[in-house]
């Protein structure tokens, strides 16, 4: 049981990173972005490429950090991948979403994101093949915390979790202490009024995409590190990430962070009640429960 709790939190923190970006996009642009999870996929693959490049060009970087399977090359790759993924998010916006926004067809954006997800997923499959990829083939054995009840934890996951926590603190500071944070909230509340007050709407939107993409990249790499990388990451994570967003309440970054952990926990704990065959349904059940009992999520505000 404690093991399930621990695992749930560790897996959930990855979803949190994905949901934090998604909730901002959904708040400001007001559409359910079905292609957000593809950003995780892009992030994972970009890091895979750069990880290989760094390891070859700078052999020193290929050494593992302590007893983690993470290398300095991978850490560096994460940073490159954040930039790259943030940039692709902006490109997608320029090419597709902004044009549809300009036509005033906001509802069409949802479907455009469906189409975009399809394109990205299959392009990745074409380029990298459909089979499983890994950053490191070594298996990192878990550290046993207790034999009875069995309680184990992988250092990789703890490291990923710590980095996630650091990122969360950074987001918190950005949102609550900077002008950007205020303009973000202002645009979410009322875009027209915000513009009247001198907030550059386009700039805010671009920042949101960059931050969302960057966080998604980190989530994608951690997912690849603790699980595996394949072109279907986006398809497989889209529902859990949406569930985390809805649980937290659309527009609330803190909600998304907590939402991810709740979805992770629930998915793990659900298997003590449900047969494991039903695990893909768990995120949906969570969404239903939230809609029944707290329609605007934990931190969301009611809106018309």
């Amino acid at each position: 049981m404690i093991q399930h709790l621990l695992d749930g939190i560790l897996v959930g923190s990855i979803l949190s990173l994905g949901a934090a970006g998604l909730t901002m996009v959904m708040h400001i642009l007001k559409f359910a972005n079905f292609s957000h999870a593809e950003l995780l996929s892009i992030g994972a693959y970009v890091a895979l490429v750069f990880d290989k490049i760094f390891k070859v060009t700078m052999p020193l970087m290929a050494n593992e950090i302590g007893s983690l399977s993470m290398t300095w090359a991978l850490i560096l790759s994460i940073i490159v991948s954040m930039v790259f993924t943030g940039a692709s998010a902006v490109v997608f916006d320029r090419l597709i979403f902004r044009r549809i926004r300009a036509k005033g067809e906001e509802l069409s954006m949802v479907f455009a994101s469906f189409g975009l997800a399809l394109i990205v997923r299959n392009l990745i499959g074409l380029i990298f093949g459909l089979s499983t990829k890994l950053y490191s083939k070594d298996i990192v054995f878990a550290t046993v915390l207790s034999r009875d009840p069995l309680l184990v934890v992988k250092l990789d996951q703890l490291a990923a979790f710590s980095i996630t926590l650091v990122l969360m603190v950074v987001i918190h500071i950005v949102l609550s202490r900077t002008t950007f944070g205020y303009s973000l909230r202002a645009v979410g509340e009322n875009p027209e009024l915000a513009q009247v007050n001198g907030i550059n709407l386009e700039k805010t939107i671009i920042s949101v995409w960059i931050i969302g993409g960057g966080l998604a990249a980190v989530a994608g790499v951690f997912y690849g590190l603790t699980n595996q990388i394949n072109p279907m990451i986006g398809r497989d994570l889209v529902l859990p990430v949406f569930a985390a967003t809805i649980v937290g309440g659309i527009g609330s970054v803190y909600g998304a962070l907590l939402g991810g952990v709740i979805v992770g926990l629930a998915s793990n704990l659900a298997l003590s009640i449900l047969p494991s065959g039903y695990s893909p349904s768990v995120p949906f059940i969570i969404i239903l429960a939230v809609l029944l009992f707290r329609p605007n999520g934990l931190f969301g505000e009611a809106r018309a």
Binding site: I14, N268, S276
Partner: peptide, 11 residues
């Protein structure tokens, strides 16, 4: 039972 494409097979 192991389903295709789950975020984690820990549980």
């Amino acid at each position: 039972a192991i389903n295709d494409g789950q975020p984690s097979y820990k549980a």
